[in-house]
Write a protein that binds this DNA or RNA. Structure first.
Lengths: 146, 146
DNA sequence: ATGGAACCTCAACCTAACTTGAGGTCAAGA
DNA sequence: TCTTGACCTCAAGTTAGGTTGAGGTTCCAT
């Protein structure tokens, strides 16, 4: 065990699978705030591995860096986040995931209905045809998902 | 009924809810190919409304313009697409949607498991911790979705 | 104490999917 | 015929999420 647990950016990159430039980019976006050595090099806490892992996971779940920053802002200040802190965030993301899944399922069901009636090209389908009943609601096929 | 069913770009924009510049952009990407007047103005077929509506729908389902172009390439050449043509494409997109939904559901289930064990911040979670059993598989939390 | 790997900043580049603006042309109703 | 709104092209700008390269500095094992 080293007396000093601070990691240089290269180590953090290896541990998270991120590129060094991506980590610097996240810093520039305010997602992570490393310390600096006297020589201006970044030094990260071990808990920053979790933080970056979380960013990777959340991205894969479809969140933008902005949304992720919002989630990370819920972590405690001045104290290393513990299991409960991360669990709270995970739960909140789970809700977003559920919503996204539900939305896609709605879209799929609508598409299913339209396969049945062939409406993507038929004049008399109210779902897709802006000339028909929905014309007053504004143009386009927006309705499918909304 | 006009003798001539060709539409100028502005009409098409109004009918689809797209901006004029977006339609021009789609043309530049090969997604749509209007005729031209003697004075070089675009003139679109009525069936192009469907085509653009389809682009809008597919985008909302998460397809990129490139993927959409791939789908549109399946439409018949030289003949106005009919209900069956569009239905075939819809079905293919439905499959992609199903896959996407399944992937998100897998991700959510993994996340659920991790809320239970608090692993986003615990050293002993093999799912998220690159130092543990999965270390040999390369760094990072990639595992969650893959 | 030294040499090279690893670090630093800053600017420029990249893709996707568009928008905006400049400068100029077309077409259709009065 | 004239006027004016709609159209044209082409270049540059925008946001997200980064990468790449130039030119220079720091750290640490020997």
């Amino acid at each position: 065990m080293k007396a000093n647990d601070l990691l240089p950016i290269g180590d953090l990159a290896r541990r998270t699978g991120l590129s060094v430039s991506a980590i610097r980019y996240y810093e520039s976006k305010g997602l992570i705030e490393p310390h600096r050595t006297g020589g201006n090099q970044r030094r990260f806490l071990r808990s920053d591995i979790r933080r970056l892992s979380f960013i990777l996971i959340a991205q894969r779940l479809g969140l933008s860096l902005g949304e992720i920053e919002g989630q990370l802002a819920r972590l405690p200040q001045g104290r290393t986040p513990d299991a409960k802190d991360w669990a709270a965030i995970s739960r909140s993301i789970r809700d977003q995931l559920d919503a996204r899944i539900a939305e896609l399922q709605r879209a799929r069901d609508n598409l299913d209905g339209c396969i049945g009636c062939g409406c993507l090209s038929l004049k008399n389908c109210t779902l897709y045809n802006p000339d028909d009943a929905l014309a007053t609601k504004g143009p386009g096929p927006r309705i499918v998902i909304g």
